[in-house]
């Protein structure tokens, strides 16, 4: 089975994240780049499926030069090879442009199964998995907490507000995973050493047959008009419990008409 895992590099949530004042895009230099956490679960699931069914796991990541650190991490976990979609023309793409670029790269790479995280920690739109399914014309098996492949058929449990749905489809398919699905492995020392030798192919827009007028900041379907750092919340009242802390909290709630 040919599995492609989409992995995004995101700014570390533990550091202060910013937008750039010049073009209002994410300031990728302001914070350390890390693997989007849910994408580690996506890599883990791909490795488990490969271990059970055989095949190959390819990492696909679109982003600037430093994205290679993130790609190496996924390779160190055990993926076989990687494709780095990297071109200045892609800079500033919105969800439409990104989904288009990734879908073109996927057509080039070939796949039986595409696995993504269900949401990034920076933009958090959660739309890319469905958008890839739409663009590729493949079934959408998103928000999966369990994945089972049997020959050419695939079943997932899709989490919902009331529990989960059992969903079935045939391969090829697009899957997105939630963190409940597994426990990602840590790269071993051997894995880290091996990752240095694994092939990473860099694709530009021309290589992936991406129309340059459909990607990038200037061609986006949406724009940031303006932004501002949110004003800090006004300092509140903090009391020490002297045996009446619950009663004082109740008074506060009553003053705000919650009770």
């Amino acid at each position: 089975m040919n599995i492609v895992v989409c992995v995004k590099q995101v700014p570390d949530t533990a550091t202060e994240r910013k937008l750039r004042s010049d073009d209002k895009t994410l300031d990728r230099d302001a914070a350390d780049g890390v693997v989007n956490e849910l994408d580690e679960y996506a890599v883990e699931e791909a490795l488990r499926l490969k271990e059970a069914h055989g095949g190959e796991v390819t990492v696909l990541s679109m982003g600037p030069a430093k994205t290679t650190e993130t790609i190496r991490k996924a390779l160190a976990m055990g993926a076989d090879k990687a494709v780095h979609l990297h071109d200045d023309a892609l800079y500033g793409s919105d969800a439409l442009g990104t989904s288009y670029a990734l879908s073109q790269a996927l057509k080039k790479i070939g796949y039986d199964l595409v696995i993504l995280g269900s949401e990034s920690t920076d933009a958090r739109t959660g739309m890319l998995p469905a958008m890839l399914a739409e663009r590729l014309g493949t079934p959408q098996l998103t928000l999966a907490s369990k994945v089972e492949v049997d020959g050419s058929s695939i079943k997932v449990e899709r989490i919902t507000d009331y529990g989960y749905d059992k969903v079935e489809a045939s391969l090829p398919a697009v899957v997105s995973v939630v963190e409940k699905i597994n426990e990602p492995r840590y790269p071993s020392f051997k894995g880290i050493m091996a990752a240095k030798k694994k092939p990473v192919e860099t694709l530009g827009v021309a290589d992936a047959e991406i129309a340059a007028d459909q990607v990038g900041l200037a061609n986006s379907w949406s724009e940031v008009v303006e932004f501002a750092v949110a004003p800090p919340r006004a300092a509140g009242t903090v009391v020490k419990d002297e045996g009446d802390g619950g009663a004082k909290a109740a008074e506060f709630l009553a003053s705000k008409k919650f009770v």
């Binding site: 449990e157 529990g163 969903v167 489809a169 045939s170």
Partner: peptide
């Protein structure tokens, strides 16, 4: 293409 074969209600 992606058929929902069962809805499982866990927490109501």
């Amino acid at each position: 293409a992606a058929r929902i074969v069962e809805r499982v209600v866990q927490e109501k």
